[in-house]
Design a protein around this nucleic acid. Structure first.
Length: 295
DNA sequence: AAGCACTTCAACCGCCCGCAG
DNA sequence: ACTGCGGGCGGTTGAAGTGCT
């Protein structure tokens, strides 16, 4: 037996709210409050709407002191910072931005901020590549660099991340997917392939690590990602750090961004190695890219 | 001016959780 | 302890708006 619907779907109106409906809802709540019962409210207010629809309309549009319009740079920064830390917990993020709703922030992130950040990361990878190519003398030296992280801490495609911070256990599978990174450097690709081959026969393994850095593949489709996060940055301790470039899935704050060129963390590393890409991307977002690139 | 592609955002859907009975 | 209900939340959708050719 399924649960009863919250309202009679056949008799409620759906779609955009009319000014008349807005007026009725606002007047009713101004006079009576919500009464702690959204399901009963539309009937009392004389609205042919689902209670949940009323609640959403009130919270996202009609309630007092709501801000509409462009987000400030400060708000951008707060959203980026919180998203990097807690992921897509929009209601919590909204609580830090008076006058903004979770729906607003979610839309703003999905339509604007995400693109800005991905753009920033692309610029970081380009920046990182150009710096590396200028410092690389020969292919043999880069191969040597790549060999070391693969040995120290194999690149593994993660199977699943149950939550942004649930990475005390890194679950990885040796599935056939992953590592389809077209732009990955040859040396790192070799190292990744070797690591993947090494784990391919294992159905599933758990890697315990104190370094909460993530390397992810979407499974089957390939690609890689790294989870940037302040906890990562502060908690990671380790020795050698090598990161490469992958094209595919990028995990930011628990959200997988597809088709982004992502930084691939090949092994655990120092905090600043995690900070750098995020800081660079963030600086690109806020028009400081020139300074960052020059610096 | 028309058609198409892309973007934005209001609204809906369905799941999860807490609470009351 | 169990069940049903309502509130809250995040993900997704689709209509409207905008820009480009």
């Amino acid at each position: 037996m399924g649960r009863a619907p919250c309202c009679d779907k056949a008799s409620v109106k759906k779609g955009p709210w009319s000014p008349e409906e807005d007026r009725k809802l606002k007047e009713y709540i101004d006079e009576n409050g919500t009464g702690g019962n959204w399901i009963a409210l539309p009937h009392k207010a004389g609205l042919k709407r689902c209670g949940k629809s009323c609640r959403l309309r009130w919270l996202n549009y009609l309630r007092p002191n709501l801000k509409h319009g462009d987000f400030s740079d400060d708000e951008d920064r707060i959203i980026c910072s919180l998203f990097a830390t807690i992921g897509s917990r929009w209601s919590i993020i909204a609580a830090q931005l008076p006058g903004r709703t979770d729906n607003d922030i979610k839309n703003y992130w999905n339509t604007k901020l995400k693109k800005k950040l991905v753009h920033g990361l692309e610029r970081y990878t380009a920046h990182s590549l150009s710096q590396r190519s200028s410092s690389t003398v020969s292919s043999s030296s880069s191969a040597a660099v790549a060999a070391s992280p693969a040995e120290a801490a194999p690149i593994v495609p993660l199977q699943h991340l149950s939550s942004p911070h649930d990475y005390s256990h890194l679950i990885y599978s040796g599935g056939g997917g992953g590592y389809g990174a077209s732009s990955m450097s040859t040396s790192l690709l070799s190292a990744a392939a070797a690591a993947a081959a090494g784990s391919r026969d294992r159905e599933q393994q758990t890697l315990r690590t104190d370094a909460p850095c993530l390397v992810d593949s979407g499974g089957g489709g390939g690609g890689h990602g790294i989870y940037f996060d302040e906890t990562c940055a502060s908690a990671i301790s380790g020795s050698s750090v090598v990161h490469g470039l992958g094209t595919g899935n990028f995990v930011f704050g628990g959200l997988q961004l597809l088709q982004a060129q992502a930084l691939l963390l090949a092994t655990s590393g120092a905090a600043n190695q995690l900070d750098e890409p995020y800081s660079f991307a963030a600086s690109c977002c806020y028009g400081e890219e020139a300074a960052a690139a020059d610096g």
